[in-house]
Amino acid sequence: MANLEDDPQGDGGQLAERPSSPHLEALSQKARDYARNARSENTRRAYDADWRQFAAWLRRQGLDPLPPDPQTVGLYLAACVEGSPGRDPLSVASLERRLAGICWRYRQRGAPLDTSERHISTVLAGIRRAHGRPPLQKEAIFADELLAMLATLEMDLRGIRDRAILAIGFAGGLRRSEIVGLDCGPDQTEDGTGWIEIFPAGEDISSASNNDGGAVLQISGKTGWREVEIGRGTRPETCPVALLETWMRLGRISHGPLFRPVARKNGGVSPERLTDKHVARLVQKTALAAGIRGDLTEGERRRAFGGHSLRAGLASSAQIEEAHVQKHLGHASAEMTRRYQRKRDRFRVNLTKAAGL
């Protein structure tokens, strides 16, 4: 019986058959490439890990992955949420993501898994009822806290790069994958997920006059392409655009990935793209160094801050109409934007008084 691990990329078993001509073979390769690009690199990596965990559990139980069996999947979900020696139980959110990864792999093999089947749906509903909790959110970083974080960084090339990452990530309300996915221009790399264009003062794509200029980011995010405008700040040492220009000039970066590793020994800039994990570590390190949320233990503070802290900070700080924040962040709904607003005007609409109580 077929083993789904024979297709580690999950690019579709139906596309793996050898075409009858060179032309069809080229099209088949293109189709596989498009299938891989149907999900972001981070999502594919997570789904691959989800499948490896599921496949390993099946092997331990002496079970075969094909055909997909809803009852077996239901047992696996129960096993995950209960945990085992050496393995912590999964949260409901992690369990749902793992199920999504399993379903995605089965679909790629042309053997879809029906999650509405009772052996899955009722088990999952029971798990949600017994173990469901409100989603844990990263602490938001506000403008004054961001300034304190910037001040903890050195003025070497690495510190200049990290200043630009923090400032651009905050001002753009970007996900960490969106930050490191930026290129210096369009169509410069195969793995880029966006690019940046810098406009000097007085120059604007709309030909308007008397403006300070800034940066325009074209971002391919979860909800499709969006355009993000980042205006210039009042001080060069904290202005996101000025910090970015300094990084590009000193790092001699004009083509390809915008943010790249810097060697510790000689300070040379790598041609490779920085990973999104660097953004999470950077936010955690500088938040701790700046003493933010000093009421928490160091371990709690590390868990409290991450890449999303920048995004949540902008959403919570921006004193403008919610629709503008929603568009800037690329959210499909206003409800999602509100989840990011850690400090918003609560109880402004008071239904208790409106009802006459």
Rank of each mutant, 00 (worst) to 15 (best):
R109S: 10
G173K: 12
E178A: 07
Q188D: 01
T193M: 14
T193A: 14
L146S: 03
L153D: 02
G110H: 02
I141D: 04
R158L: 09
R158C: 08
I127L: 05
G169M: 08
L182H: 01
A111N: 09
G173R: 11
H119W: 11
I127W: 00
R176W: 01
G192F: 04
P112A: 11
R118Q: 11
G110M: 02
R109F: 09
P134A: 15
R176H: 02
D187R: 09
P186R: 03
T193K: 15
L153M: 03
A151W: 03
F142K: 13
H119I: 08
L150D: 01
K138Q: 12
A125Q: 05
I179Q: 00
I141L: 08
L153A: 06
E145T: 12
F142Y: 15
L124F: 04
I120D: 05
I196G: 13
T152S: 10
R133G: 08
K138G: 05
H119C: 12
D187H: 13
G173H: 11
P135H: 15
G194R: 02
I168Q: 01
L166Q: 00
R158I: 04
D191F: 10
A111V: 13
Q137C: 12
G173F: 11
A151E: 01
M155E: 03
E178I: 09
Q108D: 06
S177P: 05
P135M: 14
P112K: 12
G173N: 09
L174N: 04
M155G: 04
L182A: 05
M155N: 13
S177R: 08
I165W: 01
E178F: 06
R161L: 00
R133E: 06
S177E: 12
I179R: 05
G181S: 07
A143H: 09
G185T: 12
P200D: 15
P134L: 14
G194H: 00
E197R: 15
S116H: 11
D156Y: 00
D156F: 01
P134F: 13
A201P: 09
E190G: 14
I168Y: 01
T193V: 14
A125H: 05
E178W: 07
V180R: 01
L174C: 04
R109M: 08
V123T: 14
A130K: 15
G169A: 07
R118E: 10
L124I: 08
Q137Y: 09
A201C: 13
K138R: 08
V180T: 04
T189I: 06
G181T: 00
S121M: 01
A171G: 06
R175S: 06
P186K: 07
F170T: 06
D187M: 08
I141G: 05
L157G: 00
D187L: 09
E190P: 12
R133M: 07
P186C: 12
F142H: 15
A130I: 11
A164R: 00
A148Q: 10
L174S: 07
S177V: 07
Q137S: 14
V123R: 09
R158G: 02
I179A: 06
G185D: 12
I127R: 01
R161M: 00
G192K: 07
H119Y: 12
R175C: 07
I168A: 03
G169T: 04
R176G: 03
A201E: 14
F170W: 14
D114M: 09
T122G: 07
Q188A: 00
A111H: 13
P186F: 04
S116R: 14
